[in-house]
Amino acid sequence: MTHSRIAYMPLITYPEAIADDATRAAVALARPLGYALSVTTFAVDFPRVSSGLGDLLIDIPGLVQSTEEKSRAECRRLEQLVLESAASPADVHCTARKVPWGAVPGDAAEQARYFDLALLPWAADTAPVGDMAEAVVFGSGRPAVLVPPSARPAPVDHLAIAWDGSRVAARALGDVLPLLAEGGSISVLTVRDEKPLGGSDLAGALASSLAKRGLNAKPVETTLGNRTIAEALQDTALSNGAQLLAMGGFGHSRIRDFVLGGATRGILSQLRLPVLLSH
């Protein structure tokens, strides 16, 4: 590998794999961001149990074996998809792990700790993807970028940071700055009516601080109106030309709902740009 920075990408195979277009988009984004890529595909492992007399009617061991074989075959297929989608296959390393059913998200979070950030292909209609995002964002200690299928493989010339002056927002800022291309610009986003803020010009204060470090930054204030926090931040980021949005894991009162829960999938079904989450 020629890069010193490595991104980690975990890929599930059971009960279903994420859509191929989301995986392709995430793989293709690694090189423009300046990262080599380490991909792990997870083959599911089920415990061997017998249902007694039920085995006479339903071949439980056979069903378990068939499911595991299908999962292993999906690992091989995903590895080929990753290599075909990479701009430079030499920058990609693929491994497969056999992990007990239900333990995949936690195992992925542990593996992610050994890398610089995680790239997570995103699809709101695939429930295990939300479980994976929760585990990696809140359990790895590393930043994670949710990548929708619509993401384009290009350097980040303009990023947006959701800013409320909190510790986690500062953490997100530190995590996202290495992704900004040389000479790129930053929009500092503040949502005025989402929750009480600790100052009247937080966005302006951060933009001024970034400018002193030679960065091109501008403050941008917005309001929720009838929108969710996810919609307001994405709308504002996109309208200002940002290619990536960054935010702290608990920087907004409803940030966990941005990633998790019943309302989550409805909100993120409209994810329109890569989002870096840092906890």
Rank of each mutant, 00 (worst) to 15 (best):
P153K: 09
A103I: 01
T264P: 02
V39M: 09
F46K: 06
G251V: 00
A108E: 03
S71G: 07
G102Q: 07
A263D: 13
V137R: 12
M247F: 00
T23D: 08
G139L: 10
K195V: 01
A172G: 00
L197Y: 02
G165A: 01
G198Q: 15
L33Q: 14
H158L: 09
A108F: 03
R254V: 15
I186W: 03
D116R: 13
I229K: 00
T228N: 06
A19V: 09
A162E: 00
L53F: 13
T222V: 10
F138D: 09
L202I: 11
D20L: 07
S4V: 07
I12Y: 03
N240P: 06
V64L: 14
D164G: 01
V145Y: 05
L224K: 03
V188L: 04
L33F: 10
V145I: 12
D235V: 14
R76F: 09
A162G: 03
D257M: 02
L159M: 07
F138C: 10
T2G: 03
A172Y: 00
H279P: 12
Q111W: 10
M1E: 10
S4K: 08
V104D: 04
R152G: 06
T2A: 08
L244I: 03
N240S: 13
A36P: 02
G130P: 04
A22G: 07
E134N: 05
I18C: 04
A154Y: 11
G262N: 05
E110W: 15
A36Q: 05
A242W: 00
L245A: 01
R213N: 12
D20I: 02
S239P: 08
G141Q: 07
L53P: 02
P47K: 12
Q65P: 01
A217M: 04
G184I: 03
Q111R: 15
L271N: 01
G102T: 05
D45K: 11
